[in-house]
Each structure stands twice: as structure tokens, then as C-alpha cells.
């Protein structure tokens, strides 16, 4: 067998093209292992997602990437630098939007940005210019001089994103960027993040919202119990771990399990939930017709495209994690 003549040159120096490069990355807190040996590569310009239930190790991973949490073991390179040694130098080129807003509520929106810009050694005049530009970008220009305290959750989140952009970072880390926001606010945040991505900013985000991951991420990993359980583009993951379509059937019965047997053989996989039965199929209409051919009459039928949510629940289970 011939060697690969077309192997990309990047393969010779794998860390060069990756803004974030992790191998066997581990984070332990005492006896508890939060991150249990993960491999991650994030390329310049892509939007990369960490998906997983609570406690999967997403935030611990993000904190290591943000250089505020030294790895317990393993390799971690960010922008080609070692976070154990070059923390401040790396952080100078990162933007961080934490899970909980940590704005200064006594200051105005603009002052939050200008004072933060000063931490990066940005001059006062330039800080002010960037603050105004960013406030415009996150649609808070008219609130520039109002204090942060009375701003809505969505506005605060947008301001935090603006603050993360104040040093014109190469990578922006977003830990659950839209958790707790109402639908309008979420869409506005997504739209702004998409604009950032178009400008060539590399986005790394964690989320447990499937629609968020599908909207924003080029590539993502699913984490569970500190490990990566799947990796790929949203489309790839759906193709690999789910079927093209899902049919949701609700029967008028206390126990949906009674119907499982009668549905046997339709589609690739069948899942019984307390309130409905899910059929994982290639063709939802065809499967629905088959259900009716078997003289079953569910109270409701919903044939839909398979989503990342199906992948996620398949991989991480339906048990509630608190």
C-alpha cells in the first residue's frame, strides 16, 4: 500500500493550524475528575461547541482554555503557547464571556467596556472609541451612559459579549451564552455571534441547547462525564447517531410500552418514553403509513427531521442530571 501522497502539509505540524490543541487533557478537583482525558483541536475561524449535560466538564474545559485553571495533566496549547507559562500573554488574545455575567453594576455600560479595555493596556482614547463601536455592534448604543444594574438579562449578556470583544480577540470563549434569556434576546445574541464568526473570529462555546449548537457550530463535541463521547459537525452527528427523520407517536394509553411490540420493525430504532414512542426512520411519511397499515391509531403523530437533540439524548441518556 502506498503512503498518502496527498496528506495535507498541516499534518506535519499539527499544532500550527490549531488555535486550541489539547491531548489527554485532565482536570481533577481532589478526588473528583471533572475532565477525563479529552482531545480537542479548534481551527482558526471556526465555531466550535462543547455540548453536554450539566456536570459534563464543559465549563472546567473552558476555564482551562481561558487560562484561569491550570490543567492537572495532559497537553494544552492555546495560540501555540503554553497556558501554564504564558497565561497573561494568551489571555491578552482571548475574549471571555462567562456563564454568569460579572459586569460591574455600579458602572455605566460604556465604563464597563473602557475600564476593561485598560486591563489590556489599551489607551484611554482608543478604549472609548472601541467601547462606542462595540456598543453599536451589540445594539446598546442608546444605553451607553446608563448604569448596568437596570438593564435586562439580554442586554447584560450582550454587554458581556461586547466586553469580551474589547481587545479584538482571536478566540472568543462563550460559556452558555444564551442560558436564561428569552427567545427574542437569544436570537439577537445568536445573530451577533454569527456576525462575529463572519468577521473571522474563532468562537468556542458551551451549550446544552441543541438549537444553539445547530445554529452556531461548525463542529462540536458531545461531552458526558468528563469525556468526549462524539465529535463532528451537527449534520454528521445526526447522520451517525440518529436517522434522517423521527416519528413521534402518542397513544391514548397509560403505558406506551404496550405498543412497542406492535411497532416492531418500523425504522431503525424505537424508543419508548413515558408519554410517547419515538421511531427513528429514514422516511417519516412512509413510517407513518406503515403504522396505519398495522391498524394502530395513535392520538397524535408528528413526523419531523432528526435534530441534534436526538443525538444528544441518545448519547448522554435521558436521566436527569442536576
Amino acid at each position: 500500500m502506498e503512503p498518502h501522497p496527498t496528506a495535507p502539509p498541516a499534518a506535519q505540524n499539527p499544532t500550527e493550524d490549531f488555535l486550541i490543541h489539547a491531548r489527554g487533557l485532565v482536570k481533577r478537583f481532589g478526588d473528583f475528575t471533572a475532565v477525563d482525558g479529552i482531545d480537542v483541536d479548534v481551527r482558526r475561524g471556526e465555531a466550535f461547541g462543547f455540548l453536554g449535560p450539566n456536570g459534563a466538564g464543559k465549563s472546567s474545559t473552558m476555564r482551562m482554555i481561558g487560562c484561569v485553571s491550570p490543567p492537572t495533566s495532559g497537553v494544552l496549547e492555546i495560540l501555540g503557547l503554553d497556558p501554564r507559562r504564558d497565561g497573561p500573554r494568551i489571555r491578552a488574545r482571548l475574549g471571555v464571556c462567562p456563564q454568569l455575567d460579572n459586569l460591574d453594576i455600579e458602572l455605566t455600560a460604556r465604563e464597563n467596556l473602557t475600564t476593561y479595555a485598560r486591563f489590556f493596556g489599551i489607551g484611554r482614547r482608543e478604549a472609548r472609541r472601541r467601547a462606542d463601536e462595540l456598543l453599536e455592534f451589540v445594539q446598546l448604543a442608546e444605553r451607553a451612559d446608563s448604569k448596568v444594574e437596570p438593564l435586562s438579562g439580554g442586554m447584560k449578556r450582550r454587554l458581556t459579549i461586547a466586553r469580551a470583544m474589547v481587545n479584538q480577540p482571536e478566540v472568543v470563549l462563550l460559556d452558555e451564552p444564551t442560558t436564561g434569556l428569552d427567545p427574542q434576546a437569544r436570537h439577537l445574541v445568536w445573530e451577533r455571534l454569527f456576525r462575529l464568526k463572519q468577521q473571522g473570529v474563532t468562537l468556542v462555546l458551551t451549550t446544552h441547547y441543541m438549537d444553539e449548537a445547530e445554529q452556531l457550530c461548525d463542529r462540536l463535541v458531545v461531552m458526558d462525564g468528563g469525556r468526549i463521547v462524539a465529535e463532528g459537525s451537527p449534520r454528521e452527528l445526526i447522520e451517525r447517531y440518529s436517522t434522517r427523520e423521527v416519528v413521534e407517536l402518542r397513544f391514548n394509553a397509560d403505558d406506551q410500552r404496550a405498543y412497542a411490540e406492535k411497532l416492531d420493525g418500523i425504522g431503525e430504532r424505537l424508543e419508548v418514553l413515558p408519554d410517547r414512542v419515538l421511531l427513528y426512520v429514514d422516511d417519516g411519511d412512509e413510517a407513518t403509513a406503515e403504522v396505519h397499515r398495522r391498524s394502530l391509531s395513535p392520538a397524535s403523530v408528528l413526523a419531523r427531521r432528526s435534530s441534534l437533540e436526538d443525538v444528544f439524548l441518545h448519547l448522554t441518556g435521558r436521566t436527569l442530571v442536576d
Binding site: G66, V68, G87, P88, R89, R91, A92, L94, V96, P98, L100, N102, L103, D104, I105, Y116, F119, F120, G121, R163
Partner: peptide, 14 residues
């Protein structure tokens, strides 16, 4: 409460 120090720690400050 305000977690301001954590915001500062994310910047290139020691």
C-alpha cells in the same frame, strides 16, 4: 456577589 475579580482574572492580569 458581583464576581468582578473573576472578570479581571480573565483579562491578562496577574
Amino acid at each position: 456577589w458581583l464576581k468582578v475579580y473573576f472578570a479581571q482574572a480573565a483579562a491578562p492580569l496577574r
